[in-house]
Design a protein around this nucleic acid. Structure first.
Length: 266
DNA sequence: ATACCTGTTTCCCG
DNA sequence: CCGGGAAACAGGTA
């Protein structure tokens, strides 16, 4: 489920909790999402606290509570944030449920690749404030792309786009969407990207990020019609631009969908 | 049954 | 020491 826009949408599902006081904390006894934190701390630090705010940055989510408490959520591959009414009964894969008077706020993650962090401190946690520049920030410039291309010249461009140190929030389908729009074969090594292509690659990153936020990020639905997204999931689909057969193969360690007619090796 | 999956970390290799 | 890639994590779904 979760890349940048879906993560932004997920974090909003807990907006109703802002300014509410946590009456009950329900923690899954065995879920791996607590592997890096102390479950007792999660319980102790959140119980009775008032949620101040929630925000997302790339694939990371941070909630701020009274008493200088910070709750970090990463959705992994199958995580989601939901809200239900106050009579909600926790289900099998609900890792964390926070109950306030009116609602239950749920972090559900069947595969448990997600992650919960809990911290107490006057300032935002270091892992949060040290994140790379957001792709939405005006300081996210083409220089970041160019430097990454040079540094990782032996890597396929698809793998580079998935690197969260440079493109926080970029995920598998967004990366495919970007390369398809920029007409770049995903297996191209970074050293092979022509200088002239870099500006369009950068612009397509911005386009896909904002387009995804305006559709998926707003209402949780799908990206706009005509995007590769709608054709990329199964074999035998046609390219929305060329109407020729799309191809799917593993590139950069992930299933990658592209249009061989449109996206060239340089 | 078998394969596949919108992510990250760890380990091994050159 | 560095960068790249495979494996591992785990459960649901086709």
């Amino acid at each position: 489920m979760p890349e940048l826009a879906e993560v932004a949408y997920a974090s909003k599902q807990w907006n109703l909790a802002v300014s509410k006081r946590v009456k009950e904390v329900v923690i899954h006894p065995t879920s791996r999402v607590f592997r890096d934190c102390d479950k007792n701390s999660v319980f102790e630090l959140l119980s009775g606290k008032q949620m101040k705010s929630g925000q997302s940055h790339g694939k990371q989510i941070l909630f701020h509570f009274s008493g200088n408490v910070w709750l970090g959520v990463h959705l992994g591959m199958t995580g989601s944030l939901l809200n239900e009414n106050s009579t909600y009964l926790p289900q099998k894969h609900d890792a964390l449920v926070l109950k306030v008077n009116t609602h239950s706020f749920i972090f559900r993650d069947p595969r448990q690749f997600g992650r919960i962090r809990i911290e107490e401190g006057k300032n935002q946690p270091v892992w949060w404030s040290n994140q790379p520049i957001s792709m939405l920030d005006s300081k996210f410039e083409i220089k970041i792309l160019k430097n990454a291309l040079i540094r990782h010249n032996r890597r396929p461009i698809k793998a580079l786009l998935l690197d969260q140190r440079y493109f926080p929030g970029m995920g598998n389908w967004m990366a495919d969407e970007v390369l398809w729009r920029a007409k770049i074969h995903p297996a191209n090594l970074c050293s092979k990207i022509p200088q002239l292509k870099m500006a369009s690659l950068f612009n397509e990153i911005l386009f896909v990020v904002s387009g995804a936020l305006n559709s998926v990020g707003k209402n949780g639905g799908d990206p706009p019609k005509g995007w590769l997204f709608h054709a990329r999931w199964k074999d035998g689909q046609l390219c929305p631009k060329t109407n020729s057969a799309l191809k799917r193969e593993s590139i950069g360690g992930r299933t990658t969908c592209f249009c061989p007619e449109l996206q060239k090796i340089f």
